[in-house]
Amino acid sequence: MILKSKVIYILLWSALMFGCRQNIELKSTSGKLVLVDSSIAADSAVASVISPFREEIDKQMSRIIGFSEAEQDSYYPESPLSNFVSDIIQERALRYLKANNADTLPMISLMNIKGLRANLPEGEVTVRDIFEIMPFENQIVVLTISGTNIKAFFDYISTTNGEGISGAQLVIKNDKVKSVTINGDVLDVNRNYYLATSDYLANGGDYFSMITNPIQSQLIGCKIREAIIEHIEELNQNNLKVVSNIDGRIKID
């Protein structure tokens, strides 16, 4: 009898647990953001895990690769930094095509201004500065694009108030192309062009849909960040500094 009533009690208890589930009730919620600043002493165990990683990074990041005459920043429609990086992409892609005897089409380059995440400082330029400008591992890719899609590309960047470009001159009026030339020649929709850019944009980033189905696509085996670092190192070897190259390649009429 005692056993039986215990069994009933157990059954009863399980049933009640279920029956009373609704009785966990939310009473109050309060929230805030706690500032993480120097008033909080660092946890020593975590700090000691980080230290060797930081030292290794610092060693490589603090290396001086060259000099810049002035701070180079990026803005629309054209800017010192977006022109600088677009020109580097253009030069690296051309070098690759020439080395492979594939320098057969007129070429333009594209660097999205949003992808440049910091300014190039005046004076000493370190590896760290370039990592801050270009934290992404994006690679340079050369696309073969129809003239029609190149036209669509210029139409698009006219609606977005410009971009980082190289190899072309664009005049925008009322968000539309007023005129465009590629290496001095008028755009010909009946021929193909090369467009060098990042694999990120070529694969659909930032909605450049007109370049996502190219006739051909060639990765040149060089990250954009590496190309920037190597270019500034080459300038420095020739005792040259980075200089601003605003040259009116994109004008708003």
Partner: peptide
């Protein structure tokens, strides 16, 4: 760091 304190009444 976000912090939320949520209080439940507990009849169960």
């Amino acid at each position: 760091l976000g912090r939320l304190d949520i209080v439940f009444s507990d009849d169960k």
